[in-house]
Simulated assay, not measured.
Amino acid sequence: MNTFMQLQNEAIRLQNADVPVDSDEGLKFAKAYWDMITDFTGGDMSMLPRLIALGQFQNADHKGKEVQDIANGYVEQALGVYFSRLGIEPFQGESEEEAE
Score class of each variant (00 low, 15 high):
residue 81 V to I: 03
residue 18 D to T: 02
residue 64 G to K: 07
residue 24 D to M: 13
residue 88 I to S: 03
residue 58 Q to I: 13
residue 54 L to M: 13
residue 65 K to A: 15
residue 18 D to M: 05
residue 52 I to C: 02
residue 44 D to R: 12
residue 62 H to W: 09
residue 40 F to Y: 09
residue 1 M to V: 12
residue 66 E to N: 10
residue 41 T to Q: 02
residue 96 E to F: 07
residue 50 R to L: 09
residue 73 G to K: 05
residue 41 T to H: 01
residue 18 D to I: 02
residue 30 A to F: 05
residue 3 T to P: 02
residue 39 D to F: 11
residue 59 N to P: 04
residue 65 K to R: 09
residue 17 A to S: 15
residue 61 D to Y: 03
residue 77 Q to N: 08
residue 92 Q to S: 13
residue 8 Q to D: 05
residue 64 G to F: 03
residue 7 L to E: 07
residue 1 M to F: 11
residue 21 V to Y: 04
residue 21 V to I: 13
residue 12 I to R: 15
residue 64 G to W: 07
residue 69 D to V: 12
residue 17 A to D: 15
residue 45 M to N: 11
residue 61 D to R: 11
residue 100 E to S: 10
residue 71 A to T: 06
residue 13 R to D: 10
residue 49 P to G: 10
residue 64 G to P: 12
residue 59 N to A: 10
residue 75 V to I: 15
residue 13 R to P: 00
residue 27 L to M: 14
residue 7 L to W: 08
residue 37 I to M: 07
residue 10 E to D: 02
residue 68 Q to R: 06
residue 34 W to C: 01
residue 36 M to V: 01
residue 85 R to Y: 09
residue 18 D to Q: 10
residue 72 N to A: 11
residue 55 G to C: 09
residue 17 A to M: 10
residue 72 N to K: 15
residue 11 A to N: 01
residue 2 N to S: 11
residue 38 T to N: 08
residue 17 A to H: 05
residue 29 F to G: 04
residue 65 K to T: 15
residue 54 L to K: 10
residue 62 H to V: 15
residue 81 V to Y: 01
residue 78 A to H: 01
residue 93 G to M: 08
residue 76 E to N: 11
residue 93 G to F: 04
residue 66 E to T: 13
residue 68 Q to I: 01
residue 42 G to V: 02
residue 54 L to R: 10
residue 7 L to K: 02
residue 91 F to P: 06
residue 94 E to H: 04
residue 7 L to H: 09
residue 68 Q to M: 08
residue 78 A to N: 06
residue 83 F to S: 04
residue 28 K to S: 04
residue 73 G to Y: 10
residue 25 E to Q: 11
residue 37 I to G: 07
residue 89 E to P: 00
residue 64 G to L: 08
residue 84 S to E: 13
residue 72 N to G: 05
residue 39 D to V: 08
residue 86 L to I: 06
residue 83 F to Y: 11
residue 33 Y to C: 03
residue 35 D to W: 00
residue 50 R to T: 08
residue 100 E to Q: 05
residue 90 P to C: 15
residue 57 F to V: 15
residue 43 G to S: 11
residue 7 L to Y: 08
residue 100 E to M: 11
residue 32 A to Q: 13
residue 37 I to R: 12
residue 12 I to E: 08
residue 63 K to H: 05
residue 91 F to K: 15
residue 25 E to G: 04
residue 39 D to H: 06
residue 97 E to L: 05
residue 100 E to C: 05
residue 71 A to I: 02
residue 83 F to V: 05
residue 11 A to M: 00
residue 89 E to I: 02
residue 53 A to K: 14
residue 34 W to F: 08
residue 15 Q to D: 03
residue 34 W to S: 02
residue 20 P to D: 05
residue 4 F to N: 03
residue 12 I to G: 00
residue 100 E to W: 13
residue 45 M to V: 14
residue 32 A to K: 12
residue 67 V to C: 00
residue 44 D to Y: 09
residue 26 G to A: 03
residue 25 E to Y: 02
residue 20 P to A: 04
residue 82 Y to T: 01
residue 63 K to I: 09
residue 42 G to N: 13
residue 64 G to Y: 08
residue 35 D to I: 01
